[in-house]
Structure formats: structure tokens, C-alpha cells
Amino acid sequence: MTIDRRKILLAAPALLAACSGRKVLSYDGPQVTSIMAFKSQRRLYLMHGNKALKAYPFQLGFAPVGHKQFEGDGKTPEGAYIIDRRNPNSAYHLSVGISYPNDHDRAFAEAHGKSPGGEIFIHGTPRAFESKQDWTAGCIAVMNNEVEEIYSMVGDYTPVFVKA
């Protein structure tokens, strides 16, 4: 009997979420082939090819203009990344990780003697922040019911494009 390691790795987040008591939705629609986030519009799109499957409004880091350069700058990164991890036990309901910093981000910060930071996610919103604008430390925050959809629809290694 052959065990397909990729299937185990892809199933692990759902199993962990089931153990955590969080409800993880199932999704049986077209594959999400990329995520497009437009900071100036505060809109995130789950894409299948060039067709938007879903769109969500979002909140950004507390300093929303410009590309994240250093840890603690409050900016949300801009550029090309991938979904590289999941957190079914997130303090922000559920979350999917964005692969910031990339090599360019690290090199830029290092050249300035600083850390690029990290731990950038698409995540839910605690009740206390539901009416606040741009409150994260650099993440993309959607409502909790929306992050449940995103978590179920988006696979690991999905490309993420964050634009100004």
C-alpha cells in the first residue's frame, strides 16, 4: 500500500481544524488558482483563471499605504507570494499564511540593518475590531464567515498577488 504524502499534507489542516472545534466548510467548486488583493480598493478576489469566484472587502495594516519593508512598520506587503501555511487555531478565527518575506524583501531589510518581519496572514476579525479601519500589523483581515470560505476554498501554494 502506497501512502501519498501530498494527500496527507493537504488533509492535515482539515483534520486539525476538526479537532479544534472550529467549523471548516467544505468546498466542491472550481479550483482557486490565485488570490488578487487590491489595497487601494480594499477588495480581495479568489480567482479561477481570469474569472473572480468570490470577492471580499478587507482591512489592512495600520499604515496601509506602501509596501511592507520592516518589522513593525504596520504596512501590508505588496508583491507576489503564495499561501504557505494554515492556522485552524488562529487568535483571529482561522487564517492562511502568506509567504512574506520573499528573498527580495529579506535582502532589502538586511541592507538597511533591519528585520523584514513576517507572520503575514489572511485572517478573520475579532468582534472588538469589526468596526475599525486598518487595524492589523500588516495582515489582510476579512470577517470571520468570509475567512471560513477562504480557508476552505484556497489550497496551499496558491499564488497571492497583493497590489497597491
Rank of each mutant, 00 (worst) to 15 (best):
N144Y: 02
H104A: 15
L15G: 04
I83K: 09
G97L: 04
S95N: 01
D4L: 11
V65K: 12
K39C: 04
D103Y: 00
L46R: 07
G118I: 00
K132I: 02
A80N: 12
E78G: 09
Y151C: 14
E71A: 13
S99K: 03
I3H: 13
V142A: 01
T158A: 12
L94V: 10
Y27W: 13
G61V: 03
A111P: 01
L44D: 04
E130L: 13
A137S: 06
L94H: 05
F161W: 12
M143T: 09
I140V: 12
S40F: 06
Y151D: 13
G66Q: 07
A137Y: 03
P64H: 11
H93I: 06
R43F: 04
A11E: 12
T33E: 06
Y100I: 04
E78S: 11
E78L: 07
H123V: 01
N87K: 04
S152I: 07
M1F: 05
G155F: 01
G124N: 06
A141K: 03
A52T: 13
L9W: 10
L53Y: 08
C139V: 00
G74V: 10
A11K: 08
Y92L: 08
I150W: 03
S40A: 11
D4C: 11
Y27I: 02
R22W: 00
P126L: 08
V96I: 15
P30T: 02
V154Q: 05
A109T: 07
A141I: 09
G49E: 05
R42D: 11
Y27S: 09
S152W: 11
P116M: 07
F70Q: 13
E71N: 13
L44N: 03
G74S: 13
P126Y: 03
A164C: 04
T125F: 02
F161K: 06
N144C: 12
S99W: 02
I82F: 14
A80Q: 12
P101R: 03
H123C: 09
D28E: 15
F121W: 15
A63D: 09
D156M: 15
A52N: 04
D134T: 06
F70H: 12
Q59L: 01
E146M: 08
E110D: 14
S95K: 03
P126R: 12
L16H: 09
P116Y: 00
L15D: 05
